[in-house]
C-alpha cells in the first residue's frame, strides 16, 4: 500500500517558485499513482482565483495547470475557510471544485495522511 501524502501550498502564484513546486510534487506523485491531497492555505488560495492573466507577467498559467489535476488522478483538493474569509473570497471566486474546511477539519485532514509537506 502506497504511503499517502498531503501537500500544503501556502504561497501566492506570483510569489516565486513555491506554488509551482507544490504543483510539481503533486503531478509527479500522481504519475506514480500515490494517494495525494492538496491543501491551499494562506496566500495559496490566490492560486485558485478566476480570470488571472499569467501572460501579463510572462509566466505560465498556474491556475490552468491546476485544472488538469483531476485528469492526473488528483481529486482530493482542499481549501482553508479562514484563508478565504480573510481575503474576502468564497467558493464562487474559485476556478476549480474544492472541499472547504474549517480549522478543526484541517487538523483532522492533516492527521489522515502518512506524510505532510508544507511549501
Amino acid at each position: 500500500m502506497a504511503r499517502s501524502m498531503l501537500i500544503i501550498s501556502r504561497q501566492a502564484p506570483w510569489a516565486g517558485p513555491s506554488a509551482r513546486e507544490a504543483l510539481d510534487i503533486v503531478l509527479a506523485g500522481g504519475a506514480f499513482e500515490l494517494p495525494l491531497g492538496l491543501l491551499f492555505l494562506d496566500d495559496g488560495v490566490f492560486q485558485l482565483t478566476k480570470a488571472q492573466q499569467a501572460a501579463s507577467l510572462e509566466q505560465k498559467d498556474l491556475t490552468a495547470n491546476l485544472q488538469a489535476l483531476p485528469l492526473f488522478g488528483i481529486d482530493s483538493l482542499f481549501v482553508a475557510r479562514s484563508s478565504l474569509t480573510e481575503r474576502n473570497l468564497d467558493e464562487s471566486s474559485l476556478a476549480l471544485p474544492v472541499e472547504i474546511l474549517d480549522d478543526a477539519g484541517l487538523s483532522t485532514l492533516i492527521n489522515r495522511y502518512d506524510h505532510v509537506i508544507t511549501i
Binding site: A54, A64, F72
Partner: peptide
C-alpha cells in the same frame, strides 16, 4: 491550450 501543460501518459 486548456491546461498549459503536456499530459503524462495517464492524463
Amino acid at each position: 491550450a486548456e491546461f498549459q501543460l503536456s499530459p503524462a501518459t495517464r492524463p
